[in-house]
């Protein structure tokens, strides 16, 4: 075999499509020919590199959300009259998706963290929320070089508020707060920045009066909302709306509209 023939077979060899006979003849050639050997080694390395980079092994919230969408659609194929409408317009499907998404958020949390239960007083949450006033530049690094968990915009919109599609997710990451990992996601809604913290439920104590109303602390008004299993708390810091959501498996986020009401 000469160099020209060896080059002809290059990609068939790399893609493992060449016959055994050809593969052996190429091997014999590149054992003797330095230049062809270099090209084969280079192309093999490039191929391996591209394949590795293409595979995205991040845990995908999107996949779990999609799975519940597909299962819901299969159910409508089996029982056409039971659940009409196509996601995301059917409330029935939507609540499934919301629940699934919320569960995944919790799962991501539990898997990726080493929780320390702290009996934080409510007031100290203000400290947590000061993180929200950091510059948004931190969150543009969605790429994500900091080793933080990054989700795509759609994934988080589903996770945090499945029916709010116009929110633009700028970024998300895991942050340490007193030894506990909290998820921090920043959305833009027009001129308002919405900073969402996802905090393990057992790390927060919310005063009972907040659950259904509002509370003043340190000159800041906090509004509470209970949507069944998940407690939400809102307050404003400058132009930022801060939402703190506790995460539990039984979350129903469907009835919750961030920013609605008195805030």
């Amino acid at each position: 075999m000469n160099c020209e023939e060896a080059r002809e077979l290059l990609y068939e060899i790399i893609d493992k499509e060449a016959s055994e006979v050809d593969a052996r003849r190429v091997q014999e050639h590149i054992d003797k020919c330095r230049e062809c050997f270099d090209i084969y080694r280079f192309e093999g390395a490039i191929q391996e590199f591209i394949t590795r980079k293409l595979r995205d092994n991040r845990p995908s919230l999107r996949l779990e959300v999609l799975k519940s969408r597909v299962l819901a659609e299969l159910a409508t194929i089996d029982h056409p009259r039971a659940a009409k409408g196509r996601w995301p317009f059917s409330p029935f499907t939507r609540s499934l998706v919301a629940a699934a998404a919320a569960i995944i958020v919790v799962a991501v949390f539990l898997l990726g963290s080493d929780f320390v239960r702290e009996s934080e007083s409510f007031a100290s949450l203000t400290e947590l929320h000061r993180v929200a006033t950091r510059t948004l530049d931190v969150f543009r690094d969605v790429g994500n070089t900091t080793g933080a968990i990054a989700f795509s915009r759609e994934e988080l919109t589903y996770a945090v508020a499945p029916h709010v599609s116009e929110f633009l997710l700028i970024g998300g990451c895991l942050e340490q707060f007193r030894g506990t990992q909290v998820g921090h996601f920043v959305y833009l809604d027009g001129l308002t920045t919405v900073s969402v913290f996802l905090v393990p439920a057992d790390c927060i104590e919310m005063p009972p009066e907040l659950v259904a109303g509002k509370v003043e602390r340190d000159g800041i008004t906090y509004f509470g909302h209970d949507c069944g299993g998940c407690r939400l708390m809102f307050h404003r810091l400058g132009s930022t709306l801060v939402v703190t959501a506790t995460t539990e498996p039984s979350v129903d986020l469907v009835g919750f509209v961030p920013g609605q009401g008195a805030i």
Partner: peptide, 26 residues
């Protein structure tokens, strides 16, 4: 579904298109 979604993401370049494509396929 995992494989279908990652291929769909590369093919459509758009997250929600990719999801729709996979859902339609299923």
């Amino acid at each position: 579904m995992d494989a279908m979604l990652r291929t769909a993401l590369r093919m459509t370049k758009d997250g929600s298109d990719a999801e729709d494509l996979v859902q339609e396929t299923y």
